[in-house]
């Protein structure tokens, strides 16, 4: 992302916020008060700031997952499914295994989730790499299959036997510590930030990352200089799926303590949008994920104190994404459009 498109993203943010202010004023509220409450709801006090952080973690990881797959020119819309499968894998390892030290138990849960998420993502990756099957179609469909698989598992073999379809509670050793009680923010934040650094390093500093980027930008060239582009593409998807699985595992281990059927209201789709606005730039992904998380958390506080429905903020976020996607809308300099994701 270059200077001009950063500027246009900023303009988009301002325009969206102004639009929101106009709507709030039309509803007969004070826009200044609404935004103050929005800000307070996102940052003021342990509970509110924790609420932002707790939303930030899955958004960051799913956005990263999407950005990574786009490096090998695969549009991974299947992160939601990988998140679900990772979550149930972590829930199973977390509950079935007992008597293990906490760091090992947490590590095993994460590894199980990443392995399952990665393996699941390898399927559309391989179909794309070897048979050129459109990965957008396959991943959209695979999400449903993944969610049905987890729904079956949580409803029958792994059911806790309660009225609500959920798995047995995780062992205490598999839980992530809460860092800002009474909010649900947890030490998964540090895992996610570590994942961010590692991902950045792998993509931009390692040989494997170089291969991935080469394949993504020009598979023919990559093949010519001796990179096995198909294998690289599949492994890129495994990487992406592993990040999605990790996001699911942290939701289970940090927030819920068990797997709940249908727990994610499309988290990965929000993450995907964050990645898309960031133009899949790994350095910008955390900023946008944080911005979206703060808006989502803040809107709750705004609703509580001003009576302006939370759905208005969701509508403004959607507007912002729509405007941000229109690259030609606030273009100040010709030719600022970067390479297609």
């Amino acid at each position: 992302m270059n200077k001009s498109s950063t500027l246009s993203t900023l303009v988009t943010v301002v325009v969206s916020l102004l639009f929101g202010a106009v709507v709030v004023a039309l509803l007969g509220h004070s826009p200044a008060e609404a935004y103050r409450e929005l800000f307070r709801g996102a940052f003021w006090g342990r509970f509110n700031f924790g609420g932002t952080l707790e939303r930030f973690v899955p958004l960051l990881l799913t956005a990263l997952a999407f950005a990574v797959s786009s490096k090998v020119a695969v549009f991974n819309v299947g992160v939601e499914g990988e998140l679900y499968l990772g979550a149930i894998a972590a829930a199973w390892v977390g509950a079935a295994l007992t008597g293990v030290a906490a760091p090992i138990h947490i590590g095993l849960c994460l590894m199980a989730a990443m392995a399952v998420g990665g393996a699941w993502a390898a399927i559309p990756g391989a179909l794309k790499a070897y048979w050129r099957v459109n990965e957008v179609c396959v991943t959209i469909l695979a999400n449903y299959v993944a969610i049905y698989i987890t729904s079956y598992l949580v409803g029958y073999p792994l059911s806790a036997g309660t009225g609500v379809p959920q798995t047995a509670a995780l062992a205490a050793t598999a839980r992530l510590a809460r860092i800002l009680p009474p909010s649900r923010a947890n030490s998964g934040l540090f895992i996610a930030l570590a994942a961010l650094l590692v991902t950045w390093w792998i993509v931009h500093r390692s040989t494997w990352g170089y291969k991935m980027r080469a394949v993504g930008e020009n598979a023919g060239y990559a093949e010519h200089v001796g990179i096995r582009s198909r294998v690289t593409m599949v492994w890129g998807m495994v990487f992406s799926g592993a990040l999605g699985g990790m996001a699911g595992a942290i939701e289970v281990m940090g927030l819920y303590g068990y797997f709940l059927d249908g727990f994610s209201p499309g988290i990965a789709f929000d993450g995907m949008l964050a990645a898309l606005i960031a133009r899949n730039d790994i350095r910008l992904v955390p900023l946008l994920a944080f911005f979206l998380a703060a808006l989502k958390a803040g809107s709750l506080g705004m609703e509580r104190f001003t009576g302006i429905p939370k759905s208005l903020v969701d509508a403004i976020i959607a507007m912002f994404i729509l405007l941000a996607a229109m690259e030609g809308l606030f273009l100040f300099r010709r030719g600022a459009r970067g390479k297609e994701a």
């Binding site: 949008l273 429905p309 976020i317 994404i321 996607a325």
Partner: peptide, 27 residues
Amino acid sequence: RYKADIFVVGMAVNMLALALTRFLLQK
């Protein structure tokens, strides 16, 4: 006209529709 990725536009419209109908249902 503005060269937005149709996939992003579609997802944003879905999000907007969900929020907007919820908002209007209330109002």
